[in-house]
Amino acid sequence: MTGADLPLWAAWLVSVLAVTGAAFSLTGAIGLVRLKTFYERVHAPTLGATLGMALILCGSMLLLSMLEGRLVLRDALIGLFLTVTTPVTLLLLARAAAHRDRHEGNPDAPPKP
């Protein structure tokens, strides 16, 4: 099957999944600009790394499965590895910020755990 033979419902579903996922990722990017403090900002990009990523990958898996005429689950690995590795980056960022804020005695520094 080529792209031109894709049934209309599948084309719509893939488009809706991809655009909704992209919209969540964009919202996360807007959050980086709009939110005020560092700790608030770190929440924003996780939108793209969780639901945004999941929706886009579902769209991609559906499209590839339809085109190749069999179940293609390869993209799920992208989701798995993103999910497992994102916390490492966020944890390092949060730890570094907490250390700096405490060291400089900033008023919004996190309390000791």
């Binding site: 929440h43 969780t50 916390p87």
Partner: peptide, 12 residues
Amino acid sequence: LTATPGTLWVQY
């Protein structure tokens, strides 16, 4: 906690 965007793991 990372996969749910409203929460951020700071320190354990």
